[in-house]
Design a protein around this nucleic acid. Structure first.
Lengths: 340, 340
DNA sequence: AAAAACTATGCAAACGATTGCATAACATAT
DNA sequence: ATATGTTATGCAATCGTTTGCATAGTTTTT
């Protein structure tokens, strides 16, 4: 990267014009200010000389970096790769680069990551890590930082977000289980300080009500994190309780795997003795044993929609806030079956 | 991001020194040039005022961006997330940000991605997309771009790379299968223009030889890509052939899933009628049906080692090239069993 | 005491691009 | 022909930081 650099001045000297003229020709917005004859000559020479703008100099002057910071909890959670893919495809097509950071659901890490993004003057943020009440969101609003929340959102009402409709998802799950004859349905809830945890629980409650079933507090366990271990632990508690149940709805696929673990350890047949449903349809959910019935959220679309909205915000700060809820689908596989 | 900026000059005015003094105090390498009294005063005032260097101005002057470009084939392949994680953890600790790009194994995409990274003046590259003969590697060498290859490498001999030892892996697999009594072992090979495809095939051949078994050309299928579909297609061809076999070794876990698909479609019991082995131990391989026996490559370590070497190269261009092969482990699960 | 060496700090040039403003050249109206 | 309006281009300031060099002040050596 220490190769001799061709600058605007080099091109200008070769064509016999001033560097500001070259700059204006190379910017499509100002090209029309120059005659076509000079413009063609400049474009030709710039290409021949291999001129490439210095991004730092541009950014220093324009205060724009054409980067976007994306915060995810943990890139090794397979649900986030499709989201990033959707984000990257959209932003890359508009000349932006994506800087991804993991926060591991640690608030301190989230703050230091935000700080780093500020130092880098990212043009905007996509935040997939927000809690329902989140200082980062407050900070971004106060500072006027363009941002969009993806997957999870804070409680703030006039901020943009792209989520999956967790209530529709919950209704679908309970309806499916009810049709299979299930009446005692347990719920393994994610942390309530995340909107995914909270809203999926509300969706469970609503689904039960709509199916004419009674939601039983003793058949609900609230987990501290969306993890396999917590899912397993919750299932262990449910099985140790006095209330029997014939189905478990887990707040995401990772926790559903924990449910699987516990059922298997206790010699309970998943899909036959007890039905299990997850949420997200993360990659390879169809390869599990048994293939997991789950709510498919269009993760790539979540990413690309979030990126689209962010681009609008960056280009026009007056873009009104927008909260988009994408409709999920229930994918029935072999982890659910008729009540025995 | 349009908040009023505090500059070096503002801090300098407040302390009553020159901005170059502030700059030298804030740089640990030059702090000792200033008296402790002035240094403490500057550090205090800078913190109080919330001074933050302008990264663009720094980069324009120093020609350093403190970013690293990472090229992966496809972020949704679960094997790459741990690699990125390892890379990010190491680089982030040294003040770098990671810009990730997907190339989808398309050479044109790889070239345009490299071009974008050049425009951004990333300080170095980690390339997880190289073919055995790859123009990008030639370009980087000619230009003196610091880079390290990860997972896959080109044939060039004096370039740095961090790989898994595919031969050791192959030997482990064949030895394991031989111990289970398998003699007719089929191999589903990845594309030979990738080092992973080629070297894992060589490992297969070497393992067979070392186990005193005859590698049979009719029991080898070469795939055009590392994909589930190709793995399935290859298995279909193997089953349609005249040679019987009792085990399949697939060049990666994704292709092993394709092997699973075909066996299941044909009513063949995986792990009982035919044993299956993969390579990579991608996340959730233990959740498959049956849990996959596979070669575990320490993906996070591949990432962090590659990042470490790259940092050395960036800091000292004379760092000698180094090719590291990490030792894999065989993880035996339920997809392999005794010959029937 | 004078000369030489060392240290601390300020000055200003440089990095490369963008863009407001000035002005020369050209076109149109009187 | 003269006055007015429009267009094309160059000049130079700006963005904010780093760093070579100059120089004033201090310390050490002769």
């Amino acid at each position: 990267m220490s190769k001799t650099r061709i600058t605007l001045k080099d091109v200008a000297n070769k064509v016999g014009v001033h560097s500001s003229t070259v700059s204006r020709v190379l910017n499509p917005d100002t090209r029309k200010m120059m005659t076509e004859e000079i413009a063609e000559k400049i474009l030709k020479v710039a290409a021949e000389m291999g001129y490439r703008p210095n991004a730092f100099a541009q950014s220093l002057k324009t205060n724009r970096s054409f980067t976007v910071g994306v915060m995810v909890p943990d890139l090794t959670n397979p649900a986030f790769a499709p989201i990033i893919k959707g984000i990257d495809n959209m932003l890359e097509a508009h000349g932006y680069s994506v800087i991804v950071a993991n926060t591991y659901n640690l608030p301190d890490k989230q703050q230091s990551t935000a700080e780093k993004f500020r130092e880098r003057h990212v043009d905007g943020l996509i935040i997939a890590t927000a809690q329902r009440k989140d200082k980062l969101i407050e900070d971004c609003r106060r500072e006027g930082t363009p941002f969009v929340q993806a997957v999870r959102a804070s409680n703030d009402t006039d901020v943009s977000s792209v989520l999956s409709d967790e209530h529709i998802g919950g209704n679908m799950v309970i309806s499916h289980l009810a049709q299979l004859g299930h009446k005692r349905i347990a719920y393994v809830a994610g942390p309530q300080f995340f909107s995914t945890g909270y809203e999926r629980y509300q969706g469970f409650l609503q689904g039960m009500k709509n199916a004419g079933l009674k939601a039983d507090k003793d058949l609900v366990v609230f987990c501290d994190e969306f993890s396999e271990e917590e899912g397993r632990h919750a299932t262990s508690k449910l099985l140790a309780g006095r209330k029997k149940f014939t189905a478990v709805y887990a707040g995401n696929d990772i926790m559903a795997l924990g449910v699987y673990d516990e059922l298997e350890a206790d010699g309970i047949k998943c899909g036959k003795d007890i039905s299990v449903v997850g949420f997200d349809d993360m990659p390879f959910a169809d390869k599990f044993n048994p293939p997991l019935t789950t709510v498919h959220t269009p993760l790539v679309n979540v990413g690309s929609e979030a990126a689209r909205i962010l681009l609008e915000k960056i280009n026009d700060a007056a873009t009104p806030a927008r909260s988009i809820k994408l409709k999920p689908d229930l994918i029935v596989r072999e982890s659910t079956g008729k009540v025995r």
